[in-house]
Amino acid sequence: MLRSMYAGISGMKGFQTKLDVIGNNISNVNTTGFKKGRVTFQDLMSQMTSGAQGATDTRGGVNPSQVGLGSQTGTIDDLHTQGFRQTTNNPLDFALEGDGMFAVASDIERDGKSFDASGENGGIDDINLNESSVSYTRAGNFYLDSNGSIVNPDGMYLMGFAQDDKIDTDNISALQIPETAQSFSVQSNGTVNYIDADGNTQVAGQVALANFSNPAGLQKDGNNLFLNSENAGYNGLSQPDSEGVASIVSGALEMSNVDLASEFTEMITAQRGFQANTRTITTSDEILQELVNLKR
């Protein structure tokens, strides 16, 4: 059988993967905090027909002769570029300007006991985080539950630094606004202020942001969440609006970084590449047909 036929098949598989990624990008064009994907290709091994030869006193050097055997998918990357900002005027909508991600947890413990939404096992200060239950997100649409805890749409708690006379960066807690608060606001450095029943301004804590040296190494987990990985370069939780860490814009959301014009252009490229590889297969088939017809 002809090598070109198998090379065409490998090209079709690669462009099909590219179309899958493009389709996922387009379907999430309005998903809050979504980061688009990108596919890159690599060539497969090449079959050596003649090796290279060095120059001699009487003859020049000869380059190697190789026949490529097709292509393969190299990487499927997540591009963590900044998405555009959409104003909502909702004080619990947070947009990040810069590097960093919100940390949310679904399984938090206090004094060895799991905390539930009813507050049966006590408050949520001085908690111990189970690393496996912590996820990270750029989607800043948060809500208040019945206990005043700031949660994401799936009920996961937004993590921050506790307030004890001053912000304690060594004390990680789930942020909570007292039920007696008259109003609240969030500053660009993540500090959560609220007005108590006496009309005084109090501090409920500070939003913590996770910083990664290689955010492309994070693993997507669905529901706008990312999981830490060995290649993400997790640098711990930091205060917002500090050196190298994003600032928080309250009343706005970071939307998807998908550019429809670029995606449709890539779709056309993938479609034509797929068609070109099918032509390679049909042409190879016609050559084989001619060979079979030699015997009549």
Rank of each mutant, 00 (worst) to 15 (best):
N211T: 14
G100Y: 06
Q182N: 01
I76T: 15
Y136F: 08
S4V: 08
G148W: 13
V62Q: 14
G112S: 07
D196T: 03
Q239R: 13
T17G: 04
N130I: 10
Q72W: 00
D107K: 14
S256R: 05
T58N: 10
N193T: 04
P178R: 04
V292M: 13
A7P: 00
D126I: 03
T81R: 04
T58K: 07
D259G: 00
F41L: 05
A95V: 14
E286N: 13
G11P: 02
E266L: 07
V62M: 07
Q163L: 05
K220N: 11
V203L: 12
T49L: 13
E131V: 11
G14M: 13
G148C: 09
G233M: 06
L129G: 08
A216H: 07
T87N: 07
Q16R: 07
Q66N: 06
I127D: 02
E254A: 10
S262G: 14
G51A: 01
V62G: 00
A181M: 00
K295I: 01
F115C: 10
I172P: 09
N235W: 03
D198C: 04
N293T: 03
R110E: 13
V186W: 09
T31N: 04
G140T: 10
G160Q: 04
V207A: 11
D259W: 00
Q47L: 09
E97K: 11
N200Q: 11
N128H: 10
G199T: 06
A261Q: 10
Q53K: 03
G83K: 09
D170S: 15
A204K: 07
V39T: 13
G273Q: 03
E97S: 14
G148R: 06
L44Y: 02
